[in-house]
């Protein structure tokens, strides 16, 4: 039978007073402790272990990029169906759901018969966006999605406002 350690099990380490001890040996231990030097050397061995043996925590960024976990919420994207038509029907559900009010949609008549409207303009201000994913949840057509792109570079504020074309090409 194997013994299974439960999470509730408490490991009690016996407390050792470094200055405790009796007789000559105890006195010697006390002196060694008060000298600091043995403990300093112990600490230096520890830092040497960190410096030489342990792996570095840093990612060398531009060369090595962090792989995002599944479901990471990055930049937005508008999906298209098999025929290359955008899925969005301009129902404004995402705009309503958005807590940061960063989505701005204006609807126009649809060129296709299966829906009434399509967005003429679809703007997301990424500087306002809090990447909560509410738009994704609210969408009845599964048309908007947060991708795993986490690098966003822009030189002006205007570049951070993504329009329909940009969102479709994402």
């Amino acid at each position: 039978m194997t013994q299974v350690a439960t999470t509730t099990e408490i490991r009690e380490l016996p407390y050792k007073d470094p200055e405790q001890g009796t007789g000559l040996m105890g006195w010697f231990k006390k002196v060694l402790y008060r000298l600091y030097i043995p403990n300093v050397l112990k600490g230096m061995m520890k830092t040497a272990e960190y410096a030489v043996i342990r792996p570095k925590a840093t990612l060398l960024y531009p060369e090595v990029k962090r792989v995002t976990r599944k479901g990471y919420r990055g930049e937005h994207r508008l999906k298209q169906d098999e025929q290359g038509r955008m899925k969005c029907v301009a129902c404004l559900m995402c705009q309503t759901a958005c807590p940061a009010e960063c989505i701005e949609i204006s609807a126009g008549p649809s060129p296709w018969s299966d829906r009434d409207k399509v967005p003429v303009e679809f703007r997301i201000d990424l500087l306002k966006c809090i990447y909560c994913g509410m738009c994704e949840e609210a969408c009845p057509c599964d048309a908007i999605e947060l991708t795993e792109t986490y690098t966003q570079v822009a030189l002006t504020r205007d570049e951070k406002i993504y329009d329909l074309k940009r969102l479709l090409s994402n």
Partner: peptide, 10 residues
Amino acid sequence: RIAGFIQGRY
């Protein structure tokens, strides 16, 4: 550099 190594950085 040594400070970095000791703290797990480069």
